[in-house]
Amino acid sequence: MNDVCVKGRLDGLEIAFAFADTTEVVNKLVLIHDCDPVAAHLFGRCITASVLRASLLPDGQRLNINWQYPGELKAIVIDAGHDASLRGIISPSYLHNIAQSQDEIFGDIGEIKTVVMDKGKVLRSSVTPVSLHDPVNDFAYHFSISDQIETSIKALIGFTPDEKNPVALSNGIMIQALPNCDLNIFENIRKKMEKDSFANLLKVKDGKNILEDVIDELIRDENDYHSCIIGSKISPKFICNCSSEEKFSIVLKSISIPERMEIVKENNPLKINCEFCKKTHEVTVKECIKYWNN
């Protein structure tokens, strides 16, 4: 089954939702960053949560999320677009041997920073202190506080012994209260998402229609429910734009004048490493000068 993100609305309950299967793109990113199982578990679920939230943005907008913690896990950064294109990093990518508990992984109080952009222009940004010791729950809490929109996210990830395809499944669902939503009903549905039986629905693969079963569980015994309105479907995909002219220009122009003079004097190609895709780009001195002069 290919990765997919589906947006919709529970009519009558006034709840928006997004469901995503991100198995392939999470597998790719876990391999790129050579994550151990602990880091892969955290990173993969954050990727899914980011796809879910970004999918609800207006066309063309992107969401940058930066999780920062004072524990052994220092940061997770994900850049995701309305079209479900994304890239991300986790630091460090090995946690199993340096952290043996949640407290050691996350430390005390962390912080989530989000920036919404449109064509390179910052539309809005927000920062929220977080301390739930789970990056997905911290993320949902952040939006409930920063956007004043009741939000709940459930994201699961499972693994296999296959080193080339370590991620067996990665999916999740997000719900948000729309105007006129009864918050007592929203809370009832949030509690359903916390149950083990609900998690078991998300673990099913092999082509079964997970979304249908998930929605059936969410609306069970909700008398105000009318129908499930399915919106657009998009395919989550890893895309890194580190090779773009704009990115090269930003990086090269950040080099100080003394450093530029040293680069020209040595006349050796400049190597630029991308932390998102792990590619190394070589830029000749002639190309550097072209960027510096523009």
Rank of each mutant, 00 (worst) to 15 (best):
A99I: 04
D103C: 06
D224K: 03
V30C: 08
L52P: 03
A16G: 11
M261D: 14
Q100N: 14
W67H: 14
M261S: 05
N293K: 09
P236V: 04
L218A: 00
I78V: 14
F139K: 00
R45V: 03
S93M: 06
K271I: 14
F17E: 00
S93V: 05
I173N: 00
G207A: 12
I109R: 11
G81C: 11
V136G: 02
M261F: 03
I255A: 02
R220M: 11
L201S: 02
D196S: 13
A39H: 06
K205N: 15
E111N: 15
F238T: 10
E287D: 13
D213G: 15
R9L: 08
N165Y: 14
G120N: 10
A155H: 06
F276K: 09
C46H: 00
F139G: 02
V115D: 12
I250C: 12
I76A: 00
N223G: 14
L56D: 03
D138R: 07
M174H: 01
T151A: 10
G8W: 05
A168R: 13
N267K: 08
V167I: 15
V51E: 08
H133R: 15
H226P: 00
N200T: 05
P58H: 07
A20P: 05
L156W: 04
K121E: 13
N273L: 11
M1Q: 09
I263S: 02
F238N: 08
M174S: 01
K271Y: 05
A140I: 04
I65V: 13
S146V: 12
L252K: 04
N165V: 06
L31R: 13
N268C: 09
I263W: 09
V26S: 04
G8L: 03
N209E: 12
N267L: 06
S232P: 03
H142W: 01
I90T: 11
H41E: 11
V285C: 10
T48G: 13
Y69L: 03
I98Q: 05
I250N: 10
K233W: 09
S131E: 09
I90F: 09
D213M: 07
L73Y: 04
I219N: 01
F248L: 15
I32Y: 09
S197T: 10
H281G: 08
G88S: 11
I263K: 09
L42Q: 07
N184T: 06
N184S: 08
L52R: 04
